[in-house]
């Protein structure tokens, strides 16, 4: 076996672990929000430490691979992708933590209204992240491209909920606090979906050598 292979496998394992932990965090946050479970949201905040540690480990390992193994071509693109993606995943996890912090406030107030679109947005965001992670681990560019397209669904829901919340807050000033907290929540979810598309863009770079972020390239 090539010497570099063992290192690349280790990188892949760590990325996979970091991604799974983050996916759990998203899932728990959405659940804590929908089910008004503050305790669950506190767990998310605690679990984030592990994700931060993994990011550092991946950074170090990827740097070592570049210095010591001098990767080229596919190996190089994989290493760069890992380095980049670890940062993105860490930010996704931070957004989950931020939502968890908003949940503390929201759950101290009475429910605004039965959530319909919000759980939907949460599920799609979670699925997008899960799919981007799977595309990364399997090098699946089809899945990556599909996932990037789903970002529109999230954006649509964002605007829908946003308008909804504005109407509620205008009609009843006592809802402003809860409502604005929820505005933050949907903004965080929208950002998470964006990051998932960034991960998918890295998958396409990794597999095809093409840089598609900040381009209008159709896919």
């Amino acid at each position: 076996m090539r010497i570099i292979e063992a290192d690349l496998n280790k990188l892949k394992e760590k990325i996979n672990l970091m991604g799974s932990l983050t996916q759990d965090a998203i899932e728990q946050t959405v659940k804590a929000l929908v089910e008004r479970n503050t305790k669950l949201s506190e767990e998310v905040i605690i679990a984030d430490d592990k994700i931060d540690t993994l990011e550092n480990e991946i950074d170090k390992l990827a740097t070592d691979v570049m210095v010591l193994r001098q990767p080229a071509a596919g190996d190089l693109r994989f290493t760069i992708t890992c380095l980049h993606t670890a940062g993105i995943i860490e930010r996704v996890a931070d957004h989950a933590v931020n939502i968890a912090k908003h949940i503390r406030v929201i759950n101290n107030e009475p429910p605004l209204k039965p959530y319909v679109d919000l759980p939907k947005m949460g599920v799609i965001t979670r699925e997008m992240f899960g799919d981007s992670l799977q595309a990364l681990i399997n090098g699946d560019t089809n899945l990556a491209r599909q996932t990037i397209r789903r970002d529109d669904e999230v954006d649509e829901l964002f605007h829908l909920i946003y308008d909804d919340l504005l109407v509620i807050m205008q009609s009843d000033p006592t809802t402003v606090k809860r409502g604005s907290e929820l505005l933050f929540v949907i903004k965080h979810l929208e950002r998470m979906a964006d990051y998932s598309t960034n991960i998918c863009e890295m998958v396409i770079y990794m597999m095809e050598g093409k840089v598609i972020k900040h381009t209008q390239e159709a896919f």
Binding site: R2, I4, P71, A72, A73, G74, D75, L76, R77, G209
Partner: peptide, 19 residues
């Protein structure tokens, strides 16, 4: 830089990555 980051041919990729 193309050869070393994204070679078009599999044989090139195999050679420069030591496969």
């Amino acid at each position: 830089e193309k050869i070393f980051t994204y070679p078009k041919e599999k044989k090139t990729e195999d050679y420069i990555t030591g496969r």
